[in-house]
């Protein structure tokens, strides 16, 4: 019963927080434009309501281009997550494999994606595939590393317990190691969810012919008249990133309900 109250108050906090951000945005835009009299104020920070107006006006273009970008980045994210999970499992099974693979994995993350994106696009020349690959590329590493840490986090006594009960290797892996790795897996997924979207957009900034990144670029080139379009694309990217992050968080709550972060405060009954 009190759970409803608590959830209600949580939702309230989010709404107040969102309203606060909107007010601060409008106030700042007003200050820049009408108090400080900055040159070309809209390119610094435009009024939010004008940005929203532009979004409504160009709704179909934004949806069309946005779905290309975000569709690709989500596919890439899922593929990258799958690769990360498989890598973590393989590395957890063999110390030799772990030692062999980790230098390559770490080196792979040293290549700046700004540099990698145009190279990749130059080679495969397929914008969708490039977006998918880049999203996967930035996803697999945090997922693999965090999940591997989870797989290795079990206490020796927990393993001894499974041994005492003559559990098979498979049972020990599924009932112990994989379970212990789930919090790490979700930590990795939450890290890489926003990264995957950024990576796809970077492919577009670096050469692909379509997508939300192209809208971003062209509205930048066409100067102050397009400034609201530019901010619309930014806003959409942020919102999509947040939604995706939220979905991962919800999945985490459903799949790993035991985590203390989900502890309801001041519980009274089970």
């Amino acid at each position: 019963m009190s759970g409803w109250l608590r959830k209600g108050s949580q939702g309230g906090v989010i709404i107040i927080w969102a309203i606060g951000v909107l007010l601060v945005w409008e106030a700042a835009a007003w200050y820049i434009a009408d108090v400080a009299h900055v040159l070309a104020p809209a390119s610094k920070l435009p009024y939010l309501h004008l940005v929203l107006q532009t979004m409504l006006d160009h709704w179909s273009t934004l949806v069309e281009q946005g779905s290309i970008t975000f569709g690709n980045s989500i596919v890439g994210f899922l593929i990258g997550a799958a690769v990360g999970i498989i890598l973590a499992i393989v590395m957890s099974l063999s110390r030799a494999v772990e030692l062999t693979l980790s230098p390559y994995m770490i080196a792979s993350q040293m290549v700046p994606i700004i540099g990698l994106a145009p190279i990749l696009y130059g080679i495969i020349h397929d914008p969708s595939l490039s977006r998918v690959l880049m999203a996967g590329y930035v996803t697999f590493f945090p997922v693999a590393i965090n999940m591997l840490r989870g797989l290795q986090s079990i206490k020796p006594e927990q393993e001894e317990l499974m041994r005492l009960y003559a559990a098979s290797v498979w049972t020990t892996y599924t009932k112990l190691r994989l379970k212990a790795s789930l919090p790490g897996l979700f930590a990795g997924l939450k890290l890489s969810a926003p990264l995957a979207i950024t990576a796809s957009i970077i492919v577009e900034l670096m050469g692909a012919p379509d997508g939300i990144g192209i809208l971003m670029l062209s509205s930048l080139y066409y100067g102050s008249s397009q400034v609201y379009m530019f901010w619309s694309t930014i806003l959409i990217s942020v919102v999509i990133g947040l939604i995706w992050f939220l979905l991962v968080t919800i999945a985490e709550r459903l799949i790993t309900p035991w985590q203390p972060e989900f502890r309801p405060q001041g519980r009274s009954e089970g």
Binding site: K155, Q158, L161, Y165, A166, A167, T171, L176, K179, A180
Partner: peptide, 30 residues
């Protein structure tokens, strides 16, 4: 291998993702 031992370690050694009941049922499940 005949599962004739029961053991209580010095630390509780529970599985964090299992409830009290599920922890107690682990050996029977295995």
């Amino acid at each position: 291998l005949k599962r004739k031992f029961g053991i209580v370690f010095q630390s509780p050694t529970l599985f964090e993702w299992r409830t009290v009941q599920d922890n107690i049922e682990l050996p029977m499940e295995v």
